[in-house]
Write a protein that binds this DNA or RNA. Structure first.
Lengths: 150, 150
DNA sequence: GCCCAGATAATAATATTTCTTATCTAGGAT
DNA sequence: ATCCTAGATAAGAAATATTATTATCTGGGC
């Protein structure tokens, strides 16, 4: 089955809805994402697109992936901020991760703790821990974005 | 209250248990972690320690934090691999993240889906999504480590 | 105190991500 | 169809993060 046409209409709708141009580069990055398996990295997407669009720049791929993330077409895996951060708190807790500023807020929840490991997860290997990861936009970023819109 | 002494005994026990030396650098990095709030980055720890140990190198901080992660003293937040990866699958699913090779495996779970957002998380901002993050060592890494031990 | 495997510092190299600026183009107006 | 321009891109440089190399140093068992 060829779903490339119908998939592209998703891109088209998302871009049009936000009043954003439909460019070659965005189409190619989008197709590359659709064709990818697992959790592609920026470099993987860049190398893939380069086969068809040899002159595309890394910068464009970065910008495009950020745009797609904002449009909800893809989900950046955890901190997009390229710096590794550490949890000094090794006790059970969960994370609220801001998708704008990538800050992480810890919380515990009496309603869900202790969290059990689903059986499906155990097949992948030896489990060390589980936590909930809630993605969202933090209060500070919400306030900042509201202010800028005025 | 001064808990630095008792905290240090945690480090001492962990290192001794693994037959690893207790060095100035490791002690200072450990103290810096204890004194830190939130989710410190490598650079933040490095800058902090440098005030007391001006000659420490970034390399040592990286190595030490990796060591502490392996000992379970801290938990690296998601992929330590410095590359941003993307989820092309925007439907609800969960992650098994390998703490060795940082590969991510997707899964869904009939027993827990749909996952609800705990009320505690909503106070941080506007929620976009939730997923479980299971940390562990994947089958491939387990096999490789077993082989190396022989 | 001596010794040496393990640990570190210094430096260079590599990888990732962002910035700057000149050029180009999608798509609405004409 | 052509023109126009805000938005988008390419190229290159720069900033930042991370890892590798190698010579030197040191913790802790003897």
């Amino acid at each position: 089955m060829d779903t490339s046409g119908s998939e592209l209409s998703v891109l088209s709708a998302a871009l049009k809805g936000a009043g954003i141009r439909m460019t070659h580069q965005r189409i190619e990055v989008f197709s590359e994402l659709q064709a990818s398996h697992g959790h592609p990295s920026v470099t993987e997407i860049y190398e893939g697109v380069r086969k068809r669009l040899p002159s595309i720049s890394p910068d464009t791929v970065y910008r495009t992936l950020r745009l797609f993330s904002e449009l909800g077409l893809i989900i950046p895996h955890s901190s997009t901020s390229s710096v590794t951060r550490f949890d000094v708190n090794v006790h059970e807790h969960h994370h609220f991760v801001c998708t704008r500023c990538s800050r992480i807020f810890d919380f515990t929840s009496s309603s869900i703790d202790p969290l059990e490991v689903p059986r499906e997860a155990e097949s992948f290997g030896e489990v060390q821990g589980v936590q909930l990861e809630v993605r969202g936009i933090c209060r500070d970023c919400l306030r900042r974005e509201r202010t800028q819109e005025e």
